[in-house]
């Protein structure tokens, strides 16, 4: 499948703020540190990570609102620095701020204004917007001033603005923040249905892990400017998983056989593994994009090596656990290191 978003070795350092000679110099901040990522056309990629980890910075570089310090980013083959106008034409961005409309204009006026910047006329706008306005419950408030909207309505209008542009790439920053559960569900359902149907590529940044669990095909975690893949591979939906195996063998033996075999194989579909000695035996945790395909292959190798597996437990990736696990040592991301 063709790549829609291509990011290679991307670094963004915010320069230190200007200070007077007698004031202490403020250090520069590296928000993105050699980030590399490919998102395929039609894929929904979820970005999680703590506040200040670089998620929004990554979206803003892709949307040309920020200039990267080094590295490369392309949207549908257009370099976001050298061909920024072409790149911008392919993107719609939903920011996590309510301050993105004119408070003194009503809903329709705001939509007409912003859609007009993309060359969209009134009739075409109405044709594209009505289904969304109806399903998100905004139709009856479109003639009301934006300043009278609740936070939920404001967020929904931002979605409608992005959806009507029908751009091939959608960048969503915290899509359901400050929404009640019912509205969040409605937004998630809209993103899922519309983007899948349109084959729209989505880069989704979220603090609400439920958004990512429900929507993303693959997930990465931003931490201190680094991108750590949580699930790799991909497919038609969020079908990554984690396998937990318990072995009777000592951890050194499991590491020598299974660990070195996985390393030798360099399997891209196995994101990483952990081998830990525990009271009940040696526990191996494997994160893989398609356990049903990959685990039999690994099991064959385990048996060939003479290891004694006790129990296999398969479950989906627990993003919350992943999030917390990746917080302290964000830099240490290679399978060898883990």
């Amino acid at each position: 499948m063709p790549v829609a978003i291509e990011i290679s070795d991307l670094t963004k350092t915010f320069p230190s703020a200007w200070t007077l000679p007698w004031q202490p110099r403020r250090p520069s901040t590296t928000a993105l540190d050699h980030v590399t990522l490919e998102v395929r056309e039609g894929e929904i990629y979820g970005l999680i990570g703590p506040n200040g980890a670089g998620k929004t910075t990554l979206l803003k570089v892709l949307s040309t609102l920020l200039l990267p310090t080094s590295g490369m980013a392309r949207v549908l083959g257009h370099d976001v620095v050298r061909e920024e106008r072409a790149a911008r034409s392919s993107i719609a961005l939903v920011t996590n701020s309510e301050r993105s409309f004119y408070y003194r204009l009503d809903g329709w006026q705001n939509l007409r204004y912003f859609a007009g910047l993309y060359g969209l006329g009134r009739r075409e706008l109405e044709r594209r917007a009505r289904p969304f306005l109806r399903s998100l419950g905004l139709e009856r408030v479109m003639h009301r001033d934006y300043r009278t909207y609740s936070t939920g309505m404001q967020r929904k209008l931002a979605f409608v603005r992005a959806f009507v542009l029908e751009t091939p790439v959608l960048l969503l920053d915290e899509p359901t923040s400050s929404l009640d559960p019912a509205s969040a569900l409605e937004i998630r359902r809209t993103i899922s249905e519309v983007c899948r149907e349109r084959h729209q590529t989505v880069l989704l940044s979220a603090n609400n892990l439920l958004d990512v669990e429900r929507l993303a095909d693959r997930v990465g975690m931003m931490s201190s400017g680094h991108l750590i893949p949580i699930t790799e591979g991909g497919g038609a939906g969020p079908e990554f998983g984690m396998a937990r195996w318990l072995f009777d063998d000592p951890p050194e033996r499991v590491e020598a056989l299974l660990g070195s075999w996985l390393r030798r194989q360099g399997r891209p579909d196995v994101a990483r593994w952990e081998i830990q000695g525990r009271a009940e035996g040696t526990r191996v945790r494997l994160w893989t994009s398609d356990p049903e395909v990959h685990l039999p292959l690994i099991l064959a190798e385990v048996l060939r090596g003479g290891l004694h597996p006790q129990r296999l437990d398969l479950r989906g990736v627990d993003l919350e656990e992943e999030f917390l696990r990746n917080l302290p040592a964000a830099q240490d991301v290679s399978p060898e290191a883990t």
Partner: peptide, 10 residues
């Protein structure tokens, strides 16, 4: 919702 073509239709 209206279907989405692979290229922008704006």
């Amino acid at each position: 919702p209206p279907s989405f073509p692979s290229a922008p239709r704006s």
